[in-house]
């Protein structure tokens, strides 16, 4: 009988996002968090751990990445560098 797989997310310092670091097997969430501490933070790499069972993660399809992310591709006006400012405007 296989123990479920969990994805592990670690906040390395207060004020930063939790970031995915890897996965591990554990019977329940409590054991997953304790194992995550032992496997992924042996050198003080974290101040907070999230775990989520891998089966609950839904992902976009890499084969459709082109068309899926296409809507943002031609909207360069969303970036500040799209706008040419007169030299007189020093900061904006």
């Amino acid at each position: 009988m296989e123990q479920p797989l969990w994805e592990v997310f670690i906040r390395s310092r207060q004020g930063l996002d939790h970031k995915h670091v890897g996965s591990l097997h554990a019977a329940d969430a409590k054991m997953a968090i304790e194992s995550a501490r032992d496997v992924y933070t042996r050198r003080m790499e974290g101040v907070s751990i999230w775990v989520v069972e891998s089966k609950h993660i839904h992902a976009s399809n890499p084969e459709e990445a082109g068309s899926f992310f296409d809507p943002a591709e031609d909207k360069i006006y969303r970036h500040p560098t799209f706008y040419k400012l007169p030299d007189e405007v020093e900061y904006m």
């Binding site: 009988m1 123990q3 554990a26 019977a27 329940d28 054991m31």
Partner: peptide
Amino acid sequence: VRRAALAYA
């Protein structure tokens, strides 16, 4: 141990 942990979960 593995069985007990799963049974508990």
